[in-house]
Design a protein around this nucleic acid. Structure first.
Lengths: 327, 327
DNA sequence: AAATATCTTGAAACGGGTTTCAAAAGACAA
DNA sequence: TTGTCTTTTGAAACCCGTTTCAAGATATTT
């Protein structure tokens, strides 16, 4: 591999000068600059990032940790994050924690050791305070909060409001027997949403009725079957999210139930797929891209030494489509 | 930040000894080892990866470049790659080229400069021979081939056979007016598939009839509308891939056309979603996970100094589901 | 023309681990 | 006890860009 020394020798200047040409950190005599650029082009010299990172203590990387690469919600987030990072000259290292706590901790540590400039964490359930505190680099959580810790900056949407909105809408659509698919309560988002649901139940004097369901479509298929067995009178389902709503529809269809005539469904997230489905899914929309973009901007501001707001909550919005009786 | 020197001082040994404890590269007196481990634990020392990478000339990273993070096909690939890499103690840096040639070249260069150990490239269309050749690290292409270049190792599936299979199946299902949605012919996969389709047309004396369509669902929606206008007699559609098949169904449904009664559809890829859809998509399955896993194994074998097979082609398989008249 | 200010440049130090190499320590045999 | 062999250990060199600092070159002022 050709090193900066060789380039310097060939261009008859010092390594310092080559470095200055590469980074534009100081003025260089025009003639020398051209010599250097010529040599770089001819030799195909590529500076070693590890050396640069070592000195600068920054790899110019933003680390993103998602619980599951395969989940469209996280993909849409990741896409927005990547775009915003790229716009600002940062690169992305996307890590998959596979909903596995050990892996998640490993990834946090690793990014820290790599001299990443910051971490955007779409976290799993457990308490990561220790790992986050031990990081020399800033961490921002996105969509989900680190348990028991308001110190860590967090970008999320109004899950409580979303939970309310979904329930109120189903009631207003005439549903009498609504079942709530409750996501694992270790997740702050799931807790908030559930609370919204409960509060509406109380206000409207409806008996709460939930069944647990993971955010993955696989579990959606299983839980919907159980739901139908246990509650044959059901006429409205608050799906854990859009992917689950898709599997709910599939199971209902298999059982010969008509949507929205017999049973109405509302999802959560508004992933792109929800409007591509037939029927299109009525859902509570989170501003996915905006949230991803905001997380990056927050991180960059922090790196810039600016003060940042610790908690940012984005509003959600009801999107009425075809799995409910339009009203 | 605490450095290895500080750890050494606190444990009253030399940095070399600490390094040996960390990496297990040589025997260390039991008592000293324990002192070192104690200090590491107490101080939370994390070795600097940049320094390590600089010396070792390996970041212990596999770079993966995908054309679009949001595409489920690539996500399923990425997931398999990540899993296999993780199993072998490698980390992943996932780059998104956004179907943009400049970005793709940047990503290749960047990974090379970062001392990644290898690149798995799910490439865009253009000729990347130059960038790939200028890399000091090995590159393996996955799913798509680098144009005009059989030197670069490549893992892909039997697109030609898949093209044939899909066409033959639709004919056997009784379709008389089949339209082929032809993906951009810059992609080797698309060319091969098209050739398979053409060969069957010739053999069966069917007039070939294609319309162009990108691999994204957005374009699927647009092209299906055009298709219906241009060919109202259509009764069978070879969708560019499963995502497109989903949008084809959506548009047909909107027009009141029944699938498979009026029009039959076959997709390509067998992404997870294709069986989650209602109706479930009949498709030509690529062994997505196996291909991702194979690409990683190939790379690791190469890094191990072993000889590798330059071209690996996986068989495809017809999966009959609900968008065709089962036969 | 001399003196001062400004700009350009290269040598050397630096970042923080890893490895080599030779010395020191320990084990074993004569 | 001395000599030989093996093992453990630390000092120093190394990986390769970046930056500092002071010297050399050039420009400006008096």
């Amino acid at each position: 591999m050709i090193r900066i020394r060789e380039v310097a020798k060939l261009a008859e200047v010092s390594p310092s000068t080559v470095s200055r040409v590469l980074n534009g950190t100081a003025k260089v005599n025009e003639e020398k600059r051209q010599r250097v650029e010529k040599v770089i082009k001819e030799t195909g010299f590529k500076p070693n990032e590890a050396a640069r990172t070592l000195f600068k203590k920054s790899a110019h990387i933003i680390g993103v940790i998602v619980p599951n690469i395969e989940n469209p919600f996280f993909n849409e987030m990741a896409k927005a994050i990547e775009a915003e990072a790229y716009r600002n000259g940062y690169r992305l290292t996307l890590c998959n924690s596979s909903d596995n706590l050990e892996k998640e901790k490993n990834n946090i540590n690793l990014l820290d050791r790599m001299n990443a400039d910051g971490i955007i964490l779409l976290t799993n359930q457990e308490d990561l305070t220790k790992e986050v505190k031990q990081c020399k680099i800033p961490v921002i959580t996105l969509d989900r909060q680190v348990k028991n810790n308001n110190e860590v900056a967090c970008v999320q949407s109004d899950h409580y409001g979303g939970g309310r909105m979904a329930m109120e809408y189903l009631i207003s659509c005439g549903c009498k027997h609504i079942i709530n698919m409750q996501a694992p309560q270790e997740l702050s988002s799931a807790r908030a949403r559930y609370q919204g649901y409960l509060d509406v139940c109380r206000e409207r004097k409806v008996e709460p009725c939930s069944i647990l369901c993971q955010y993955q479509y696989e579990d959606g298929l299983i839980q919907t079957e159980k739901l139908l067995q246990k509650y044959p009178e059901v006429d409205g389902i608050l799906a854990a999210n859009d992917m689950v709503a898709i599997s709910v529809y599939k199971v209902l269809h298999k059982h010969g139930l008509k949507v929205p005539k017999d049973i109405q469904i509302i999802g959560f997230d508004n992933i792109n797929l929800s409007s591509l489905m037939t029927p299109e899914i009525t859902t509570i929309a989170q501003p996915i891209s905006e949230m991803g973009t905001e997380a990056v901007q927050m991180l960059l501001q922090y790196l810039d030494g600016k003060e940042i707001q610790k908690q940012t909550i984005f509003p959600v919005e009801l999107i009425v489509r075809e799995t409910t009786k339009n009203k």
